[in-house]
Amino acid sequence: MRVAPEIMLTDEERTKLTKLVRSKLTSVRLAQRAPIVLLAASGMQNKAIAEQLGIGRVQVSRWRERYAQSGLAGIERDLPRGAPPLKVDPTLLVELTTQGKPVAATHWSTRKMAAELGVSASTIMRHWHAHGLKPHIVRGFKVSRDPKFVEKLEDIVGLYMSPPEHALVLCCDEKSQVQALDRTQPGLPLKKGRAATMTHDYKRNGTTTLFAALNVLDGQVIAQCQQRHRHTEWLKFLRKIDRETPKDKTLHLIADNYATHKHPAVQDWLAKHPRFNMHFTPTSASWLNMVERFFRDITTERLRRGVFTSVPELVAAINEYIAHHNTNPKPFIWTKSARDILQKVIRANRRLSSKQNGTLH
């Protein structure tokens, strides 16, 4: 039969243990272990100590033996639990993440990297978070190669940040091929504990093109839906802008380099309407046109989850959204100066050049 070790305390040891029990600064674990030793020193058996303290008999036996072997230091340290955690070299992890790829895959996942290095997925996640690495994300980009990039950039940003007096600045573009999509089955509505549902497949019921002109000053939108987006439709939209803007205002229209915007017929019409001044964004720089921000809003808020059984129904929904927007419009505020944007583009071009020359890793 196993006999519990006898605990003999000096006056100094008893005083220390008593202070640990009474002190409010003692950790919970140590405050629980100290009474075990004191009761054991009084001659009580492990079973009686466990019943009095409301803990397990095995726990009493463990800390009684630890004190008998190592004294106060024995109960101050926690027992080791399991095997020591495997460590990973952060430098190796970052290098492998940024410069290598897993077999037959384009990017690392936490599980693939964990299997490669022989550690847990949570360890990989912790190191990726610490180093700001997100292999699962890829961001799209396109750097403009327009030879007149600087000139066009300064022109457009100047209109945003210092608009001319007695003039309107309108960001214009068309959102082409807006589809009237109907779902093959009705979805279920949102309810507590369940997201709304929508079938992954759909039925196409035709398309429309949304022409829009965003007033930079107040956020008002002039819009028109048309079946196609040729130069004739663009001219029709320009006439609508001409009708719906004050005649005494000069108009500065910002548009991209789509061929219909520069068609000879359009050029002739603009020559007969001198209050219209066209400003074209650099090639591959449609992000400079603030109407793209409005297109994003209407897509996410009205079109993407919409169900439309016909093109007229789609056009009615677009018109309703724009009418509601115009009741309380809010302008988008441009904050980046031309200089800040130019510096960012220069850095991007420099890195791309380094990549093409094989010096960027």
Rank of each mutant, 00 (worst) to 15 (best):
D248L: 04
I318R: 00
Q45D: 12
V103G: 06
L217M: 06
P329A: 07
E301S: 15
G187K: 07
H325C: 02
A196S: 14
A196G: 15
T250P: 01
T281C: 06
R304H: 05
A121K: 00
A121F: 03
N289R: 05
R81W: 05
L217T: 10
Y202D: 03
I322G: 02
K236R: 12
T283D: 00
T232G: 06
L217Q: 09
R139I: 12
P84E: 11
L96W: 04
R29A: 07
S23D: 12
K191S: 14
A50C: 12
R22K: 13
A114I: 06
T309I: 13
D182W: 01
N215L: 03
S27V: 07
E12H: 08
G56F: 02
I7S: 03
H325T: 01
Y67T: 01
S122R: 14
H166M: 07
M125P: 01
Q59A: 07
K355H: 09
L314I: 10
R239E: 00
L251K: 01
A195Q: 14
K19T: 04
I322P: 03
K247T: 12
R66I: 05
N277W: 06
D155S: 13
S144H: 01
I254W: 01
R145Y: 06
L360Q: 12
E165V: 15
T10L: 00
A41T: 15
V315P: 00
R347H: 08
E320K: 03
P80R: 14
L133I: 14
L214S: 02
R243H: 09
K236E: 05
S284E: 03
K175W: 04
Q179E: 12
G306C: 07
M8D: 09
H325F: 01
P329N: 11
L238F: 01
A40V: 06
P102A: 13
A4I: 11
F276L: 13
G219D: 08
L270P: 02
L314P: 02
V103N: 09
